[in-house]
């Protein structure tokens, strides 16, 4: 699974420009689903299984897009000014590298600061692509880029610039590979777009699929670093079953079912309360006449930085929990 993760996290796919990532997913899932298509927002939707009398139509969602930047101005010396796509924070930028969707690479520089104690604002930063004039700059206004950082395998811990949410894309692909032959469910694996700019891909995918149940797979923050946030979730403590986040309350019946499933199958799990941020499950929940929805999370340190770290054991436990969930009837009570 690590080589799949590496391929996914090193691809460049900021919100709305997920093409390269989608191609990797499409190649990986060839022949695995019963049916697949790409919808109007670029979501890759794969159907697997048939709904038995005791089964449900289930939507699983992991977003392909990542945070990034978009060029807003090229100056006469070929420096590229930019603004952000999704929740990029300025202190993670200076000295970093970006790769544009068209393949151009560059480094992020900044104007001289009055005080070295300050962080560059976005307005004070620019991208240097090695050009010397506007004419020879290979970047145009409107070109988008992702952050560039090679995948790092630390053994049990994996680090990359877009674990959010390619690690969950890898999890869904793996869950599709291991799809239980006896599953009573009709499952839609949604590789969604534009999550980082307002959960937009999942909004339309959920409307189209009209599921009985929705589960997003995404990363969640942890509290296990020096002077970290007051949060119970930690790396290596198992699949995180979301109770709430900044944008939604998981359906309590689904939370109970996932907890019971994890306990029955001896899958390590932890309960997650995330005080900021949200996932595709938020929009699945309020689609049409309402959908019981929740999220299984992969704990991740340093989210929205170029070095997001997850635990490989947690990743595998999320796959196990998903597979166990799909293997039998789901009762919500």
């Amino acid at each position: 699974m690590k080589s799949l993760i590496q391929k996914l996290v090193e691809s460049i796919g900021p919100s709305g420009y997920e093409g390269a990532t989608r191609e990797i997913v499409r190649a990986e899932i060839a022949g695995l689903g019963d049916e697949q298509h790409i919808d109007a927002l670029g979501n890759l939707i794969v159907r697997k299984g048939h709904k038995a009398a005791n089964g449900l139509r289930i939507m699983l969602s992991a977003h392909m897009d990542e945070i990034g930047i978009i060029a807003t101005h090229i100056d006469e010396n070929g420096f590229v000014r930019f603004t952000t796509i999704g929740g990029v924070r300025p202190h993670t930028c200076f000295g970093g590298r970006v790769q544009f969707v068209n393949g151009v690479r560059g480094v992020i520089g900044g104007e001289r600061l009055e005080s070295q104690d300050k962080v560059h604002t976005f307005e004070q930063m620019y991208i240097d692509v090695g050009a010397s004039s506007r004419a020879d700059c290979p970047v145009k206004v409107g070109d988008m880029a992702g952050f560039e950082r090679p995948f790092l395998d630390l053994g049990n811990r994996l680090v990359a610039k877009s674990m959010d949410d390619r690690i969950s894309v890898a999890v869904l692909i793996e869950a599709l590979r291991q799809f239980p032959a006896n599953s009573p469910h009709e499952v839609y694996f949604v590789f969604s777009t534009q999550e980082e700019v307002g959960l937009r891909g999942a909004t339309t995918a959920a409307y189209a699929i009209d599921p009985d149940l929705g589960i997003s797979v995404d990363v969640t923050a942890t509290g296990d670093m020096p002077k970290g946030p007051k949060m119970e979730v930690g790396l290596g403590k198992g699949a995180a079953i979301k109770v709430r986040d900044g944008g939604m309350l998981s359906d309590p019946r689904l939370v109970r079912f996932l907890v019971n499933t994890a306990e029955q199958h001896n899958i390590p799990y932890q309960l997650e309360i995330l005080e900021g941020g949200t996932t595709d499950a938020r929009v699945i929940q309020i689609t049409r006449a309402g959908v019981p929805a929740g999220c299984i999370s992969i704990p991740c340190r340093y989210i929205h930085s170029p070095s997001e770290m997850v635990d490989y054991g947690d990743v595998q436990n999320v796959v196990r929990l998903l597979t166990a969930t799909l293997s039998g009837p789901i009762t919500l009570e």
Partner: peptide, 16 residues
């Protein structure tokens, strides 16, 4: 339900 968080019932009940 869930008005205080997402207006969840406000969206879904009229749809039904």
């Amino acid at each position: 339900a869930q008005e205080e968080e997402t207006l969840g019932g406000g969206f879904t009940s009229p749809f039904e």
